[in-house]
Design a protein around this nucleic acid. Sequence first.
DNA 1: TGCCTTGTATTATTCGAGTAATACAAGCTA
DNA 2: TAGCTTGTATTACTCGAATAATACAAGGCA
Lengths: 115, 115
Amino acid sequence: MEFKSNETIASQIVTYMKKEIFGGRYQAGQKIPPIREFAAFCSVNPNTVAKVYAILETEGLIYTDSTLGKFVNPNKEFLKKKRREYLQSEMAAFKEELKKCGVDEEEFLCLTKQE
Amino acid sequence: MEFKSNETIASQIVTYMKKEIFGGRYQAGQKIPPIREFAAFCSVNPNTVAKVYAILETEGLIYTDSTLGKFVNPNKEFLKKKRREYLQSEMAAFKEELKKCGVDEEEFLCLTKQE
DNA sequence: TGCCTTGTATTATTCGAGTAATACAAGCTA
DNA sequence: TAGCTTGTATTACTCGAATAATACAAGGCA
């Protein structure tokens, strides 16, 4: 896995995992990779993944069944709600940033239609 | 000025300045704040701002007239082109990220229309 | 001329993200 | 029971972003 240097690795992995969950590649209730395994996959220290998982757990996206491992929250409605909130907040932030570049509604529409 | 902790300060200031320029709050040819002054404004070390300005200069957005200071590139067409490239690449990246969350064209349209 | 502002550069230091290497507890399973 | 896998925790270390404190060169200006 590749990481940018201007953002913390943990932050990038958190974002990655959210997309995996919201994108349905980790389904509700499904087990996610053990810390050590995922750390190896990312070529990253287990402590870093532990921190990532802790953040995801705080947000309620995953839970811990020690000693079976970590699992995606089985509540599909909750995940749906979280996904919607995430997308809406991302969209709002994005539009806000574009506005700072002087992008109005018309130009925004034009941009969304590109290729 | 406020900074997030999961991204380097320099990177955040680079983004900030690009938006100031692309948004026209620093016009083509206009002088931008001296390193020391802008560092004070951001409550940041002058070295950090120097690095930021060096990055912006590498991208051709600003130039140096020592010893008068730093100025926005006076070529309006160039700035327009850079702005367009920036916006298009931001939009492409954004759509790509949403796609990973399982957002299709229809949902994307719906999201853009929110609030 | 002499001061001020400007950018540029350097050295040493601080601080926190990430690493490395363990160790421990608890439960599943053969 | 014994071993494996799981999460959790701890300590020491590395490395780079950012800071702190200067110093220097060059041009504008009073």
